[in-house]
Amino acid sequence: MKKLSKLYVGLILAFLYLPILVLIIFSFNTSKSRSVFSGFTLEWYEKLFHNELIMTSLGNTLIVAVVASLIATVLGTVACIGISRMRKAPKAVIMQVTNIPIMNPEIVTGVSLMLLFVFFAARMHLEFGFVTLIIAHITFDVPYVVLNVMPKFRQMDANLYEAAQDLGCGPVRAFFKVVFPEIMPGVISGFLMAFTFSLDDFIVSYFTSGSTAQTLPITIYAMTRRKVSPEINALSTIIFVVVVVILIVKNMIERRAEKKGAV
């Protein structure tokens, strides 16, 4: 039974990782072949870094992700303070609305926002680009912030805020001295989640970016539509390594925090 379990996990892992492994191996291939490895080279990495389109779209992606997730974090966290003070019924309605962008197919979110932006573009000076992109990203980011921060308010001892006031803090000071440290983990994980979703988003961006502000996923998509280009392999390898490093660091930080809490 134990062996069978191990075999099963091994097979699934192979299924999950082999395709990525193949991409990585062929990113070092001298020829453009996808099946025969004819020699080691770093040529594709060099080409990648000199590919202006990829570099600008990477920059765009970072700008949009940082701006959108920061705004979403502030908007969502502030909203949670208000929502946590509400009664059950309005709270439930708001949480339903919060769930809409999460539950709805991304393509519907994308086209519905596109319809809105087209409507405004025709009547005001709104052009598809960074503004529409960032608005769209905030819209699908902010529910994740709310969903991460709300539970912290629920877990928090409702008297903490009053205790701070009892000990002489005004309302604003009480919030920053006592409530904020309590919800901080939720705010950070909400921000990180929003940031990764923004970095990774293709579908919503595809419908809301226009032609001026292309993000990296959009560029990747355009590249896969064209002929074989091993630069994508190189890009995949880099992204994979970055993801692995980030997750390992994150894991280490969490472990350290756990140890600290346990002693």
């Binding site: 001892d157 008297n159 009053e162 205790a163 701070a164 006031q165 009892d166 002489g168 309302p171 440290p181």
Partner: peptide, 20 residues
């Protein structure tokens, strides 16, 4: 008069100690 201006202090039911 708000709580923080009263010369009164409270021991809360579940203590409400600041966990951080």
């Amino acid at each position: 008069l708000p709580a923080y201006k009263r010369n009164v202090n409270t021991v809360f039911q579940r203590y409400a100690l600041f966990p951080h």
